[in-house]
């Protein structure tokens, strides 16, 4: 997806200082390929990119007052290990004993950073905008779990992994954050931009057996 957005000059004066810049997502050149590879029906599976999601990396002492305040301000409970609180519009993912990833819709980094930092009240911890670190792949369809299981060693059976679960793990040779967002099943895979093409290749290859004919 290519999005045009305006870059204002520091001084903010004069139209002549306003330029238009193109923003590119790592997989925008593969949209048509994703569409061609989509399989529908009871043995269907689809892959798409969800670019430019807002991602904030939060590090805080797990028992501190800052974490509680941040959680209250965001309206999201602190998730247990390997879990997500909230939903795909605004979710808090557990990444480690003192680390969380706040994922929200595009363009909310500044606002959310403000909320988190003011709730932290200067206590120990950090909140960093890491939106440009990863892009997001969305894998959905009745066969999505079968596809992921070819490249992932985490147990994804519903008895062990279901909606609202997340895991930082290896998909093939790439480190990714895996997040089940729906029962279909539907997954978000957050992957570093430079690994996105590799992971797309891997998933498309794993999907190929479900293509008709």
């Amino acid at each position: 997806m290519t999005v045009l957005h305006r870059v204002e000059s520091e001084s903010g004066v004069a139209d002549t200082a306003t330029v238009t810049a193109e923003r590119h997502s790592p997989l925008e050149h593969r949209v048509a390929e994703f569409e061609r590879s989509a399989v529908h029906g009871p043995r269907g599976v689809r892959l798409a990119e969800e670019p430019f999601l807002t991602q904030l990396d939060l590090r805080m002492p797990p028992s501190g007052t800052a974490l509680r305040a941040v959680s209250e301000e965001l309206g999201l409970p602190v998730p247990a290990a390997n879990r997500v609180s909230g939903d795909e519009r605004q979710g808090l993912l557990w990444l480690g004993p003192d680390e969380w990833l706040l994922v929200a819709e595009e363009g909310r980094a500044g606002e959310l950073l403000g909320v988190v930092r003011s709730a932290q009240q200067g206590e120990a911890g950090s909140a960093v905008d890491v939106s440009a670190n990863r892009t997001t792949l969305r894998l959905s369809g009745p066969m999505a779990r079968e596809v992921l299981e070819k490249v992932c060693s985490v147990d994804l059976h519903p008895r062990a992994f279901s909606t609202g679960h997340c895991a930082q793990t290896l998909l093939g040779r790439a480190v990714a954050v895996l997040w089940q967002v729906g029962r279909e099943p539907e997954y978000r895979v957050l992957v570093r931009c430079s690994f996105a093409n590799y992971l797309a290749d891997l998933l498309l290859d794993a999907m190929a057996e479900f293509l008709p004919g």
């Binding site: 290990a81 060693s153 793990t169």
Partner: peptide, 11 residues
Amino acid sequence: PWCGDRDEVEF
């Protein structure tokens, strides 16, 4: 101790 059981290649 944090994430649970994982394959050796992750370590």
